[in-house]
């Protein structure tokens, strides 16, 4: 349904098309009004976020008295207070999150690209069955497998390690990305495979030398989505990571808000902002791939 041209079209401003009314003087006025409305809506949309950032730089008592988003203080003390508010410095939790995210990204890239190649290019027995299973697992709620997985990981003494969060990715359980990559590989001309085959390449070499280099946009989309999803992931980490030194950023923030009884909102906001920065950067850097990924598969 949604093709690559469609997504490319999303990234560039639409051409002005015929059905717009052009009635001389009224047009600039209308355009200004439109922009004013759009800017107002945009501000409403991100007001809470801007306010949190500005508030994190204000003295603590102002958080409950100052609703403005115009920066008036640049007080970094909330950041130092928040950084050291829990048992370990916040850097530890950031580090844990980074390790898990990197593991998950590598796992997804590895397992999903291999599986996608098989589904897109190879003919094999039970292909239809396997493909249907792959599509159906996209819709499977994770709670259904949660309890036995937990029991299984406790048997092999992996609770309070990062493995329960990384291993499923290494085994390709994020079928969404397999689907995304299948779509992408199908669009690569088969003639390229054929040419490589005539040159004597087997499937492993065709995959590594031809397909993989050509599917970097799909790999980038997978990377950036895995990054954002795993960074924000909360259910898995609070189930598997109960010892404080294993906490991710999200779990640490959750504990932070539980520990404090009406006190240090400034520090809490400061660390919340810190936790959002990597996602925001990923958004800025990878917007193109995010939008393409969403538009081609409809993911969140």
């Amino acid at each position: 349904m949604t093709t690559d041209t469609a997504t490319r079209a999303l990234l560039v401003p639409a051409k002005r098309r015929g059905r717009e009314s052009s009635r001389g003087l009224r047009r600039p006025v209308r355009s200004v009004v439109k922009h004013v409305i759009m800017i107002a809506l945009a501000i409403v949309m991100i007001y809470p976020l801007l306010w949190m950032v500005v508030s994190s730089l204000r003295p603590n008592d102002e958080i409950f008295t100052n609703p403005s988003i115009i920066p008036d203080h640049f007080d970094w003390s909330n950041y130092t207070a928040g950084w050291n508010a829990l048992a370990s410095p916040f850097g530890l939790y950031l580090g844990n999150s980074v390790i898990i995210v990197i593991g998950a990204i590598l796992g997804n890239l590895f397992a999903c690209s291999l599986a996608a190649y098989a589904f897109a290019r190879l003919e094999f027995r039970f292909k239809r069955v396997a493909f249907t299973i792959m599509l159906l697992t996209i819709m499977l709620p994770f709670q259904v497998t949660l309890v036995p997985q937990y029991i299984m990981f406790s048997w092999v003494h992996m609770l309070n390690t990062f493995w329960p969060l990384i291993l499923p990715k290494v085994l390709g359980t994020d079928s969404f990305f397999i689907f995304l990559m299948v779509q992408f590989i199908r669009a690569i001309p088969r003639e390229l495979d054929e040419a490589a085959r005539i040159d004597g390449c087997g499937h492993p070499r065709i995959f590594f030398r031809v397909i993989l280099p050509l599917m970097t946009p799909a790999l980038a989309t997978t990377t950036i989505f895995t990054f954002i999803w795993m960074w924000n992931e909360f259910f898995g980490p609070i189930v598997y990571l109960t010892q404080p030194h294993t906490w991710t950023v999200q779990v640490a923030l959750g504990q932070f808000i539980d520990n404090q009884t009406g006190g240090n909102w400034g520090a809490l906001f400061a660390m919340s902002v810190v936790s959002l920065v990597p996602v925001f950067i990923a958004f800025l850097v990878g917007q193109r791939f995010l939008i393409r990924g969403i538009a081609t598969t409809g993911i969140k």
Binding site: R17, M38, M45, M52, N232, S275
Partner: peptide, 30 residues
């Protein structure tokens, strides 16, 4: 969809909350 300048910018702004919305930080903010 169409019909004015700076649409990619507005789209980005409208899209941003959906990336941050599932985080603990936004829940804390709420």
């Amino acid at each position: 969809d169409r019909g004015m300048r700076a649409l990619p910018f507005y789209r980005s702004v409208f899209y941003l909350p959906s990336l941050l919305g599932s985080s603990v930080a936004v829940a804390i903010l709420w």
